[in-house]
């Protein structure tokens, strides 16, 4: 079990009115899975992400990573957790430290005290994993949003994490950039890295193993994408938007057309509609 939440509550400390962002959450994220956490703004999904690597520590309840609690003051233990659970944030410009890409990727391993020769190997591995090898000596300034976010992923990969948390990492990207990042995420998942994708785009959930929906700090839905998308009443209740293809398919099904009850891509849906008589 990679990450486990047990009755976790998190309250943002504020003097007059404390905001409870996460309420009594029980959640287990299994090794090697691809989990998508969805929810509207303010649903607590980003707070949940920051609880996963000890950036935030629960007000009550326990978060464990490989059995070790994140509620520790020991820097070494925290670093061990953060090495295992890598995190990529929303704004690519606000998470880069260096002006040269290879320095940026070296930053994590340097912090971990990895020997010099091995850092070189890790940079090579990380850049090839995200398909950015030829940019090694460039500056990140001129890259597109999608490319910058791939560099941010590479920077985390160089720390050899077991889990990669993408905290709304696609939110600021154009559709092309979003597709690039998702492709890399799925490739990494195929290599055995657990992916936790936090997003408010439901279409990113279609290819996940599991979808967790959050609302007002609670986990309100949890299941495969098929199970979640079929439950249209709840989807509407939690202010989520179905991907356009699924919305069309669901409407057609409701109108009594003989479509299969599954998740369609744009192409397969078009084909299925063409086959209708």
């Amino acid at each position: 079990m990679a990450i486990k939440f047990e009755k976790v509550t998190y309250e943002y400390p504020a003097e007059d009115n404390a905001v409870v962002a996460v309420k009594n959450v029980d959640l287990e994220i299994e090794d090697g899975s691809f989990v998508c956490i969805c929810g509207e703004n303010g649903s607590g999904k980003s707070t949940l992400a920051k609880l996963m690597n000890g950036l935030l520590q629960p007000t009550s309840g326990v978060v464990t990573v490989d059995g070790k609690t994140t509620a520790t003051e020991e820097e070494e233990e925290l670093f061990a957790i953060r090495q295992k659970v890598g995190m990529v944030f929303q704004n690519p410009d606000n998470q880069m430290i260096a002006s040269i890409i290879e320095d940026e990727i070296a930053f994590g391993p340097e912090n971990l005290g990895v020997p010099r020769e091995e850092i070189g190997e890790r940079i090579e591995y990380a850049l090839s994993a995200v398909g950015m090898t030829e940019y090694r000596h460039n500056t990140p300034y001129k890259l597109s949003g999608g490319q910058k976010q791939r560099i941010a992923i590479a920077a985390v990969l160089a720390m050899r994490p077991e889990v990669l948390v993408l905290d709304e990492s696609t939110a600021m990207l154009d559709p092309k950039g979003r597709a690039e990042v998702l492709k890399v995420a799925h490739e990494l998942n195929d290599q055995g890295i657990t992916i936790v994708l936090i997003t408010h785009f439901m279409e990113e959930a279609t290819q996940a193993d599991r979808v967790v929906v959050m609302s007002e700090g609670r986990v309100v839905m949890d299941g495969t994408p098929e199970e979640i998308f079929r439950d249209r009443a709840s989807i509407e209740k939690y202010d989520l938007e179905l991907p356009i293809t699924d919305a069309i398919a669901a409407d057609l099904l409701q109108a009594g057309l003989p479509l299969e009850d599954k998740i369609y891509s744009e192409k397969t849906l078009a084909e299925a509609i063409c086959r209708l008589k």
């Binding site: 820097e75 606000n94 998470q95 994590g108 020997p115």
Partner: peptide, 27 residues
Amino acid sequence: FRRADELALAMDARCYSSVAKRTKYKV
């Protein structure tokens, strides 16, 4: 200031510590 906040968080997430023993890639 908002950027500085986010950057600090990102550095924390990547185990930065000014006191711990770091290695240096570029010599």
